[in-house]
C-alpha cells in the first residue's frame, strides 16, 4: 500500500541567485497552501507531492497566492514591515521555491 508521498523542503539558502531581481512571480497551478503553526505546507495536486516550508518562504507563497505576478521589490514591500526580510533572503526563498516546483517566474 503506497502511502502519501511527503517531502520536507525547508528553504534556508539565502544566497541571492543571479537574475532574480526583475521577473514577476506566481504560484504554479494546482498548488494548495495552508499555514501550519509557524510553518506552512504546500500540496501540488498535479504531482501529488507535499512540501513543508519554513515561515519566511511560506509568507512568500501566501503573498503570491493573494497577489500573483509580484516582482521582487513589490514582494519585499508587501512582506517588509511584517517580516523585516532582507532582499538576499527573499531571493533565496524564491530560488528554493522555484527549484521545488512551487513558484514560477514570467521570464
Amino acid at each position: 500500500m503506497k502511502k502519501g508521498d511527503a517531502s520536507a523542503d525547508v528553504h534556508t539558502d539565502q544566497r541571492p541567485p543571479a537574475g532574480l531581481d526583475s521577473p514577476r512571480w506566481r504560484l504554479v497551478p494546482e498548488l494548495h497552501l495552508r499555514r501550519c503553526g509557524d510553518q506552512w505546507v504546500a500540496f501540488h495536486s498535479g504531482r501529488g507531492t507535499t512540501h513543508l516550508v519554513d515561515a519566511g518562504a511560506g509568507r512568500v507563497l501566501a503573498c503570491l497566492q493573494r497577489e500573483p505576478g509580484l516582482d521582487l521589490p513589490a514582494l519585499a514591500a508587501r512582506l517588509g514591515p511584517e517580516s523585516d526580510t532582507p532582499a538576499g533572503a527573499m531571493t533565496g526563498w524564491l530560488a528554493g521555491l522555484r527549484d521545488s516546483g512551487l513558484v514560477r517566474d514570467d521570464a
Binding site: 503506497k2 502519501g4 501550519c36 510553518q39 506552512w40 505546507v41 501529488g48 507535499t50 513543508l52
Partner: peptide
C-alpha cells in the same frame, strides 16, 4: 504542527 502534518501524510493510505 508542520512536522505533525508531514507525519500524518506519511501514514495516510489514500492521500494520493
Amino acid at each position: 504542527p508542520g512536522e505533525a502534518f508531514m507525519g500524518l501524510v506519511a501514514n495516510a493510505f489514500n492521500y494520493a
